[in-house]
Design a protein around this nucleic acid. Sequence first.
DNA 1: TTTTTAGTTGTTATAATATAACACTATGTA
DNA 2: TACATAGTGTTATATTATAACAACTAAAAA
Lengths: 135, 135
Amino acid sequence: MNKMHKEHNLTKNQKIIFDLIDKSPQPLKAYSILYNVQKKGIKAPLQVYRALDKLVEIGKIHKIESRNAFIACHNSSCQVAKATAFSICEICEKVTEISSTGLSKYLANFKDKDGMKYSKYNLEFFGLCKKCTLK
Amino acid sequence: MNKMHKEHNLTKNQKIIFDLIDKSPQPLKAYSILYNVQKKGIKAPLQVYRALDKLVEIGKIHKIESRNAFIACHNSSCQVAKATAFSICEICEKVTEISSTGLSKYLANFKDKDGMKYSKYNLEFFGLCKKCTLK
DNA sequence: TTTTTAGTTGTTATAATATAACACTATGTA
DNA sequence: TACATAGTGTTATATTATAACAACTAAAAA
Ligand SMILES: [Zn+2]
Ligand SMILES: [Zn+2]
Ligand SMILES: [Zn+2]
Ligand SMILES: [Zn+2]
């Protein structure tokens, strides 16, 4: 009955969940997403995880593996989630997606001892953000 | 009553769990570790997680975040777990710790746009291992 | 149009991963 | 001794994620 949302062909559940993540200043966890969308009719964990899986697959969001949390992609160059880098503040847990041409070129071309190249990577930096450094 | 194990001052539980991980050719998950050490008197998840936490902290093992699994460190240069890189085969799930001076220097000196430097990082590369490429 | 196909949905139940809280034990230091 | 720090054993519980199945939707093929 409902048309898919025009932008990126997201379905209704995908759109609801993407919008929530996109508006959030920090990464959101799956069950916190669930609590926040129950009023919109999304009642079960699976409905959330299915949307998250799809959104990750198409590169609209990324999973912060060390936090089991999800953040919207704001880096037009990684619309397919295969080369991601983040900085994570160990005090306030602020997460920022890093988009550095130098870094992504370096990693995309990295070969190990066997000359093996990789199709994908995820890099997480940890430290203190500007704000937390000044405290 | 028991003296701590001389090597690295591991306690009894830490030693049992480290030995198991160290002997394993692939990363082990916490509950698979639990099943494998029950005959040695370790009965509860917490006993495993506590040992794992400590072993990670002192750099004897690393956590593969994207797999929730643990691997022994075989890289003498990262005995404190603050700069880790792994290659992960997406078919056979083989994981190898990467020790590349070039890579670690590049990442240790990486500064983002704000000039922020990081105290720690974890990098996971994904692709096909040699064996799986040939199939 | 009808049929088929792939994908998404809603639902209940359950699996897998990880931590809280508390009483106790061992060890090193003063 | 007294005290501090770290590890242990235990029960219970929290958090994260998937299995299985029936129904529905959208889009493409016939
Ligand atoms: Zn991105
Ligand atoms: Zn901060
Ligand atoms: Zn290591
Ligand atoms: Zn392989």
